[in-house]
């Protein structure tokens, strides 16, 4: 090494450490958020996880609050009992199946239609494009509660518009609440109505970001429309699709307000036909006043989320691997 490069290197090192020292003040910038996050984000989850190891029902809570005796807690310690019960709990697995079913019925058509819509909107010659895009966002700004109220009425068995239309074409009325798949369909429709526009816009942005050159070279190679979509458009949008799947999964696993309002209670229907996992957590924790067991369900949900995320991650990795071929 020459003397000059040595000096330059040491000067750079000194400057970098100066910057590092200066940047430490960044801790103060992050601190408010991080402290808040730990307090209101992390600690509740830790607490809930801990609660799952106790046989805590409302009586226990009361005893503890009024007596402040530690013995109440130690007496209530239940180890893995709640988890053993959870594993055998057919309602939990039913809730899991329901959650997945609703998720499937909502996500798959939604992504396809959103993609289709985005393709239509991507055309540069489309007139009033801002109008269409803005109109599509309107469902997204309403509250879930309002949506559920409207759709509850639209899907009513005797007087809802859908059954009335079915009646006119001679079909029997469908049990949109009492049936299993119909109720899933109704709830999925609520979700789709809300998110279709939003997802279309995300797809649209991704489509517009694809460089023209890729299309031109595909055209030169004589690729058909379908081949272009398959080998150019979709791989380029891989990140976006992954992002949407992840967000959709998280939202889907936590599905709560829609089934709650649709059914008007924590039961998820007389046959628990649209009981979702989070709704079941609430049912056990608040209705049945079994706080510890509800917390165990929470832990169960967490595990499911982790497994799904891991699967998501692996799928993403393999798609990325394919692309490099």
């Amino acid at each position: 090494m020459t003397a000059i490069s040595q000096t330059l290197k040491s000067r750079k090192r000194r400057r970098m450490s100066a910057i590092a020292r200066q940047d430490r003040v960044g801790l103060f910038y992050v601190a408010p958020f991080f402290v808040h996050f730990v307090l209101f984000g992390a600690i509740p989850i830790v607490f809930t996880t801990a609660l799952a190891f106790f046989n805590a029902d409302f009586q226990t809570y009361y005893e503890f609050i009024t007596n402040h005796q530690l013995s109440v807690l130690t007496n209530a310690f239940a180890g893995l009992d709640n988890f053993r019960e959870l594993f055998k709990d057919s309602y939990f697995w039913l809730a899991l199946r329901n959650t997945f079913s609703i998720w499937l019925i909502s996500t798959v058509p939604q992504l396809i239609i959103a993609f289709g819509l985005a393709s239509l909107l991507a055309n540069a010659r489309l007139r009033a494009s801002t109008f269409w895009r803005t109109a599509l966002m309107i469902p997204n700004i309403t509250s879930v509660l309002a949506v559920a109220i409207v759709f509850q009425q639209l899907f009513g068995r005797d007087f809802g518009i859908f059954n009335v239309l079915l009646h006119y074409v001679g079909h029997k009325p469908i049990e949109w609440v009492a049936g299993t798949i119909p109720s899933h369909f109704a709830i999925a429709t609520m979700i789709n109505w809300r998110w279709l526009g939003y997802n279309s816009l995300i797809f649209l942005a991704a489509i517009l970001a694809i460089p023209k050159e890729l299309y031109e070279s595909a055209a030169l190679d004589g690729a058909s429309r379908w081949q272009t979509v398959r080998y150019v458009t979709i791989p380029q949008m891989k990140n976006t699709i992954t992002f949407m799947l992840v967000m959709g999964t998280i939202g889907g696993l936590g599905l709560f307000v829609e089934p709650l309002t649709y059914g008007g209670g924590f039961d998820g229907g007389a046959n628990s036909q649209f009981l979702t996992m989070t709704l079941y957590l609430y049912k056990q924790a608040f209705m049945n006043q079994r706080l510890g067991y509800g917390a165990a369900i929470g832990v169960g949900i967490t595990l499911v989320v982790m497994i799904i995320s891991a699967i998501n991650f692996m799928i993403t990795r393999s798609i990325a691997g394919e692309e490099s071929k």
């Binding site: 600690i43 509740p44 989850i45 936590g254 929470g298 982790m306």
Partner: peptide, 14 residues
């Protein structure tokens, strides 16, 4: 990691 968990998990404690 924490973002991925449904918000309702912490409601009891909150």
């Amino acid at each position: 990691g924490t973002m991925m968990l449904p918000a309702q998990l912490g409601v009891i404690f909150m």
